[in-house]
Structures are given as structure tokens and as C-alpha cells.
């Protein structure tokens, strides 16, 4: 039950994009068509699912006071987390290129760009800040990845429809994308007061 709670919170209530506004740059840049948005979204789910548990292991077993060095190395957190993320993305890229060239071609440049998606490092830092255990951090990674993917597909669908509407010239493209994201964020705020745990308890 606790895991389901973490999952629902991370995917909807504390959605990375629409509640915390993380991973905004690629969210705005890649949401022009639904097809590429789905490709990037799936890649983000994949990377988050792998890196959050890996970073949990690094945080506990290498940097923590009970880790292999027996001292508090938390000031190295940023460097090790981002290095593990960059290495994971690079590995994922090589594996995808080798075993599924068609998927590799479909994702193109968006695969390496995931490294600088703040949602990935943000998820690792939130995991530390909320002191999740291993299974919770695993579910948190999957949940926040799915939340990010849903948000970018939603946005891409809206922007595809928007092409047929009459927007002031100076606001077209980037400007209106910002304003739509603001409205989506306000809409997602209505989920904020919900605590899934109370529903499961019934």
C-alpha cells in the first residue's frame, strides 16, 4: 500500500513537470509533435527507473556514514549523482544502438539530452530529501517517469491542436506554450490536497 501511495503521489500529485516545473527545457522544446514526445517520454521513464535506485545505492553505500568508507561524504553527492546519470545515459544509448537500431534512430538526439533534464537529477535529490528506502525509491523513479511522460504527451497534443487556432503573431510558438503550461500547472494544483493514503486506509 505504501508503494502504491508513493507511485500515485509521484505520477500525479507531485508531477515533476506540472507541480514542480522540473525538466521544463526539454518539455517546451520537444513537445511540438506527439510522436517525438512519446519517444522522449519513454526514454525518460527508462532512465529514471534505472538511475533513481542506482543513486539510492550510491547515496547509502558509498556516501552515507554507514557506507564502505565509514564517513559522511555527502558533499560529493552532486558529482557522483550526475556522473552516474551521465554514465547511465551513455550506457543506455550504447545498448539501444546495438540491440534496437530502429528505436535509436527514432530517438535521435533526445537520448543524450536526457542527461541535462533536471527532472532526473531532481528525482535523485528528492529521493534523498524524503529519505525513501530502496523499494520506495524504485517505485518513485518509475512513477515520476510516467508522470513526466504523460505531461509531455498532453502538452504535445495541445500544441498540435493549437496550430489551427488564431494566436497573436508575437505569442505564437514559445510564448503561448509558456502560458498553456501555466494553466496546466494550475489545473494540476487541484490534485494537491489529495492524500492517497487516506483512501487506502478505508
Amino acid at each position: 500500500m505504501e508503494l502504491l501511495n508513493v507511485f500515485i503521489r509521484s505520477a500525479f500529485i507531485e508531477n515533476m513537470v506540472l507541480a514542480y516545473f522540473l525538466g521544463m527545457c526539454s518539455f517546451l522544446a520537444v513537445s511540438k509533435s506527439v510522436k517525438t514526445a512519446i519517444g522522449l517520454g519513454v526514454a525518460v521513464i527508462f532512465v529514471l527507473t534505472i538511475t533513481v535506485p542506482i543513486n539510492w545505492v550510491i547515496g547509502e553505500l558509498v556516501l552515507g556514514p554507514n557506507g564502505i568508507f565509514k564517513m559522511d561524504l555527502t558533499f560529493l553527492r552532486f558529482i557522483l549523482f550526475i556522473a552516474s546519470i551521465a554514465a547511465t545515459v551513455q550506457l543506455v544509448e550504447m545498448a539501444v544502438e546495438k540491440y534496437s537500431p530502429s528505436l535509436y534512430n527514432a530517438l535521435g538526439i533526445f537520448l543524450p539530452l536526457i542527461t541535462v533534464n533536471c527532472a532526473i537529477l531532481g528525482a535523485a535529490l528528492f529521493m534523498v530529501a524524503r529519505s525513501y528506502n530502496f523499494s520506495e525509491s524504485m517505485v518513485y523513479g518509475i512513477g515520476s517517469g510516467i508522470g513526466w511522460c504523460l505531461a509531455i504527451v498532453l502538452m504535445a497534443a495541445i500544441r498540435e491542436k493549437l496550430r489551427y487556432s488564431h494566436v497573436p503573431a508575437a505569442l505564437r510558438g514559445l510564448g503561448i506554450a509558456f502560458i498553456i503550461t501555466a494553466f496546466l500547472g494550475i489545473a494540476f494544483m487541484s490534485l494537491m490536497g489529495i492524500n492517497p493514503a487516506t483512501y487506502f486506509a478505508k
Binding site: F21, A169, A170, I176, A182, I186
Partner: peptide, 19 residues
């Protein structure tokens, strides 16, 4: 105070700049 307000403001700045 909400983050959404910053989105509106950036959108408005872009609007002003581009016009």
C-alpha cells in the same frame, strides 16, 4: 506566489519582446 505565475510572466515577457 504560485510557480504558474512565473510561467505567465515569462510568456508575457516573450510576448512583449517579440512584438
Amino acid at each position: 506566489v504560485l510557480p504558474a505565475a512565473a510561467m505567465f510572466l515569462i510568456g508575457t515577457i516573450i510576448w512583449i519582446q517579440r512584438s
